[in-house]
Simulated assay, not measured.
Amino acid sequence: MSAGGIRAGNAPRAVGHYPHARRVGNLLFLSGIGPRDPGDDSIPGNEYFADHRVRKYDIQAQTRAVLANVRRVLEAGGARWQDLVDVTVFLTDMARDFPAYNAVWAEHFPDPATAPCRTTVGIAALPTPIAIELKCIAVVADDP
């Protein structure tokens, strides 16, 4: 059983031609979610040179923002934070950013026994000047 794509009105628009999420049965699959601000598309913690290249960024600010955006998409798809079961995290600088990102993750998921499974992957780049993106799967309760 497959439903149409889900668009979360309070999340940043998709960068490409895809939905924020798609529900299939009781599984909710989120497209890659980044930390962009839903209101103005800015990236929290980024500072730029005059030519718009990123001068520096704050991985903790971006991690908090991406987790907030994931929550928005989950809610639009009928899921809750605790319904997350699997998260793939993409970092553009694993060596530099993993400890700070991991600390923010622990704030949001303090009990490893109830946290979603997680895989963190270091990558060269993302399609916008962000340092983190999450790909998530959640289990949605059956409709009453």
Score class of each variant (00 low, 15 high):
26 N>K: 14
122 G>P: 08
19 P>D: 02
33 I>P: 11
66 V>M: 04
2 S>N: 14
138 A>E: 01
62 Q>F: 02
60 Q>M: 02
44 P>W: 03
18 Y>M: 00
138 A>Q: 01
77 G>C: 10
67 L>D: 03
36 R>H: 13
79 A>H: 06
46 N>M: 05
30 L>H: 07
72 R>S: 14
22 R>H: 03
8 A>D: 07
120 T>V: 15
86 D>L: 12
125 A>C: 09
144 P>Q: 08
120 T>W: 03
35 P>C: 10
110 P>H: 14
62 Q>M: 01
15 V>F: 08
112 P>S: 08
1 M>S: 15
129 P>Y: 10
95 A>S: 01
141 A>C: 03
92 T>S: 05
53 R>A: 09
39 G>L: 14
50 A>G: 00
143 D>S: 12
2 S>R: 15
97 D>V: 01
136 C>Q: 05
4 G>D: 14
62 Q>V: 01
67 L>R: 02
19 P>G: 04
25 G>I: 04
22 R>I: 12
103 A>M: 14
53 R>G: 02
95 A>N: 00
53 R>L: 04
80 R>N: 12
26 N>T: 15
130 I>G: 01
68 A>G: 06
16 G>R: 05
37 D>T: 09
10 N>M: 05
82 Q>D: 15
26 N>E: 14
21 A>R: 04
130 I>E: 15
144 P>I: 11
75 E>Q: 14
74 L>H: 13
117 C>G: 12
61 A>Y: 06
63 T>Q: 01
33 I>V: 13
111 D>W: 06
93 D>G: 00
140 V>F: 04
138 A>M: 01
41 D>Y: 06
19 P>F: 00
64 R>W: 00
110 P>R: 14
40 D>S: 05
6 I>F: 04
55 R>C: 01
64 R>M: 00
62 Q>K: 02
142 D>Y: 00
140 V>P: 00
103 A>F: 07
107 E>C: 07
31 S>L: 04
138 A>Y: 02
54 V>K: 03
84 L>S: 10
124 A>E: 15
123 I>N: 07
104 V>Q: 02
138 A>W: 02
78 G>C: 06
60 Q>V: 02
109 F>Y: 10
123 I>H: 08
16 G>Q: 08
28 L>I: 14
30 L>W: 12
82 Q>V: 06
25 G>C: 05
108 H>N: 15
109 F>V: 04
57 Y>S: 04
39 G>N: 14
25 G>M: 10
95 A>C: 00
131 A>T: 08
1 M>L: 10
141 A>K: 12
118 R>C: 11
80 R>C: 07
48 Y>Q: 07
28 L>G: 11
107 E>R: 10
54 V>Y: 03
102 N>Y: 11
95 A>I: 00
130 I>A: 10
143 D>I: 05
85 V>C: 12
